[in-house]
């Protein structure tokens, strides 16, 4: 990388990895312990029997909780806090859900296609009552495909940061500054992945998932709009304020 020393890349990487480890919501050890704790048949039936509004609200709460950890992740990244406030807000607004989806692969078990939700692992069928099977199955597919890349915690940390600090977001006031930081993160990620993966194309495969991430977020927005048309009072009164601010 021209004009960047290995020392600087290493500093950036270590800062991002530290931030991730501090703000990842569940440690790797906690996730390991929970690994085969799955929701029972009765518990799944219980989720399936909830009304659409109730389950949407529960999911909105969980997503918002996860987003709060992503905000903290961003705040502990030195380069992110050096961006102007406008761009910090823009990047988080447009990227926080994508980062949640990346982080989700840590709490996804590809052996039985279950995700950690409200304390235990459960499959897609748990979310039937939401009435957006396409979105749920797309999210599960994405998590499974990300798991197949067998990313280390460090790689997840750096990839999360690269997804967040993206020049593809409209209305950035200092796109060049964002670009420089993003490039350094990708260089650091490339360096780490070259060491960890036999597959030379591992980073390219990872970058190739980014359009899917964007599509998932668009689909989420569409589903929310459709849901809100039918249940405006649920969204206005019962959804977390941060969720509404970001996605409404």
């Amino acid at each position: 990388a021209p004009g960047v020393s290995m020392g600087e890349l290493d500093r950036i990487a270590q800062n991002i990895i530290k931030s991730h480890l501090e703000t990842c919501q569940y440690t790797a050890e906690e996730l390991q312990q929970l690994a085969w704790q799955t929701h029972s048949y009765e518990e799944v039936k219980m989720y399936q029997s909830k009304s659409r509004e109730v389950l949407w609200q529960q999911c909105a709460i969980q997503i918002t909780h996860a987003i709060q950890y992503v905000v903290e992740f961003a705040k502990r990244i030195t380069g992110f806090m050096e961006l102007c406030q406008n761009d910090q807000i823009l990047l988080l607004k447009s990227g926080c859900l994508e980062v949640v989806l990346v982080r989700m692969c840590r709490a996804f078990n590809p052996l039985n296609n279950t995700v950690l939700f409200e304390g235990k692992y459960g499959g897609m069928q748990m979310f039937k009552a939401l009435g957006c099977d396409d979105l749920v199955s797309a999210v599960f597919d994405f998590a499974k495909s990300l798991c197949s890349l067998q990313l280390t915690e460090e790689e997840i940390a750096l990839f999360s940061a690269a997804v967040l600090i993206s020049t593809d977001r409209p209305w950035l006031m200092e796109p060049r500054k964002v670009q420089k930081l993003q490039e350094k993160i990708y260089f650091a990620l490339q360096h780490i992945m070259q060491k960890n993966h036999m597959d030379e194309d591992a980073l390219a495969k990872l970058i190739g998932r980014i359009p899917t991430l964007a599509a998932l977020c668009t689909l989420h927005t569409e589903e929310l709009q459709a849901f809100q048309q039918l249940h405006p009072e649920t969204v206005n009164v019962l959804f977390p304020p941060l969720y509404k601010e970001l996605f409404n």
Partner: peptide
């Protein structure tokens, strides 16, 4: 900032 009061406040607050 005006349209994202909660996000702005989260960014301003000291680390939680």
């Amino acid at each position: 900032k005006e349209k994202h009061k909660i996000l702005h406040r989260l960014l301003q607050n000291s680390t939680s």
